[in-house]
Design a binder for these strands. Structure first.
Length: 292
DNA sequence: CTCCAGGAAAGTC
DNA sequence: GACTTTCATGGA
């Protein structure tokens, strides 16, 4: 199947969307990109304004890649200065993806203090060992392990997957989700603050992980995750928006205190508006690949 | 070798 | 409240 995209009404860039660092499990064989979502394996490729796909129907593609988001309107709303404007031009067509909350949650707990290649490695290790095998296109793929699959693993087995100090967080969070004590559907319906407070109860989930899960899987497009790269962006470009003592702390090498995190994140939500998460993703990818 | 990565939690004052 | 230390591991 294929989908013709009007670049003015529905701009989309598959490459930027998959490479910006929001998803960790996509693979490329030949010129096809293979994705796994829940139990669906599918492949996608883009040629200019045509999106080609197999193994998924149009509704699924529209929903997963958020092609229902009015991107031109969103970009116009977050386009508040020359830096974000530059990032928007550079990565035109980048979209936030609708991930499944459970996989997103575990992925970003694993992501603490790791670079992206390491994150991909550990997620692949988890899936290959504890996920279910699914064949597609004469290749083998694996679903992401279920909460019960991870909950029953001894932490030593998780450590053997190179999870390090994250192993206990993963197992404990898996137990909580497996017991049905985390209702992702309810979080989707709740407002940003309420949903965030719920997520913060989970072991291994702090401000940054919570905001990633809210943005990438729970429809909270105002969520603005602040990691080491975003701290760098604010130190170099938005220092004047804060008081001097705070600006000085931004220059330090230490990780953000919870209060300083809120200071940046809530400023960004006011500054960029209700689609601040989109601004974050463009700035994040820009900071990682260009000089800021 | 040292330094860093999509941080969080526990400890200290 | 706030600052500091600890937690593992692979890659540059």
């Amino acid at each position: 199947m294929e989908l013709k995209l009007n670049p003015h009404l529905t701009p989309f860039n598959l490459e930027h969307t998959l490479q910006c660092g929001q998803v960790f499990r996509w693979k490329r064989y030949n010129d096809w990109n293979y994705g796994i979502v829940e139990r669906h394996v599918f492949k996608v490729k883009q040629k200019k304004n045509t999106l080609e796909f197999r193994g998924a129907n149009l509704d699924f593609i529209m929903r997963y890649f958020r092609l229902d988001d009015n991107l031109p309107k969103i970009m116009a709303e977050v386009n508040q200065d020359s830096l974000i404007s530059q990032a928007i031009r550079t990565f035109s067509g980048l979209r936030i993806v609708r991930q499944s909350p459970w996989e997103c949650l575990i992925s970003f707990i694993c992501a603490t203090c790791k670079n992206i290649p390491s994150i991909k490695n550990v997620i692949h290790r988890l899936s290959n060992q504890f996920g279910e095998k699914i064949s597609f296109d004469n290749r083998e793929f694996h679903t992401f392990p279920t909460p019960s699959a991870l909950a029953e693993l001894p932490s030593q087995v998780l450590r053997d997957c190179k999870l390090g100090f994250r192993a206990n967080f993963i197992r404990e969070t898996a137990e909580i989700v497996d017991c049905g004590k985390m209702d992702f559907e309810a979080l989707r319906d709740a407002d940003y603050q309420t949903a965030k407070e719920e997520l913060l109860q989970l072991p291994g989930v702090g401000n940054k992980v919570a905001d990633c899960v809210l943005l990438f899987s729970l429809e909270k497009l105002e969520a603005f995750p602040v990691d080491i790269w975003m701290k760098r962006v604010f130190r170099n470009h938005y220092k004047k928006c804060f008081d001097m003592p705070f600006a000085k702390r931004l220059s330090g090498g230490q990780s953000l205190s919870s209060r300083d995190y809120d200071k940046i994140s809530s400023f960004a939500r006011r500054y960029f508006g209700k689609f601040a998460g989109y601004a974050q993703e463009y700035l994040y990818y820009y900071a990682r690949t260009k000089t800021v």
